[in-house]
Design a binder for these strands. Structure first.
Lengths: 91, 91
DNA sequence: ATAACATTTAGACAATTATCTAAATATTTC
DNA sequence: GAAATATTTAGATAATTGTCTAAATGTTAT
């Protein structure tokens, strides 16, 4: 997937807030959107960027789409950072 | 300084390459620039963004300006990531 | 002092991005 | 099947960003 998209994705404050919300468990697009003043379309766009960056996963359940964090990709970010701080992770 | 500037700064590939170059020790703006096709002005701009984000420090030595990594801020990024991965940042 | 060198700053431009409104798609309920 | 609900997609626009050239600043050497 590449670290570029991922690091770019977390550079936006709205998207980081979405990630923070998902810390407490999966949520629908609507539930996420309720925490912001932006329109649903805008939140949908951010969700799309996060998904495309691998940071979140989506699962369709009937009328709703549930989003949740994808820990795997957070580990990749961790690897990138620890390559600087010295604490050695894979690669 | 705030994590926003920092995460935004590492979202650009040229800037990440600059950070990678500095892993092996401090370098002048000119030395850094030699690794890219971009003009000196462009590299200078990226150095300015990185410095403003706290990721690098600069020290003027006569005719040259030396840049080096600022580990402190990398630790901040690490904290942000580990808040997701559940890893304990206090140990 | 003047020239040469190292780097930044200023101003301009094109590409990218965040946001909006309106329309489209998909699912459930009546 | 039509209406209601949840979410995305399309198209437009304004703000941000990466890059360039040209000019400015600061330093060293002649």
């Amino acid at each position: 997937m590449g670290i570029q998209k991922t690091l770019k994705a977390i550079g936006d404050p709205t998207r980081r807030e979405i990630l923070d919300l998902l810390k407490s468990g999966e949520k629908t697009a609507g539930e996420i959107g309720q925490n912001f003043e932006a329109t649903g379309a805008t939140i949908s766009h951010h969700l799309s960027v996060l998904k495309n960056a691998g940071l979140i996963l989506d699962e369709k359940k009937g009328k709703y789409i549930y989003y949740e964090l994808n820990m795997t990709v957070f580990e990749e970010i961790l690897s990138w950072v620890t390559a600087f701080t010295g604490g050695n992770k894979d690669e």
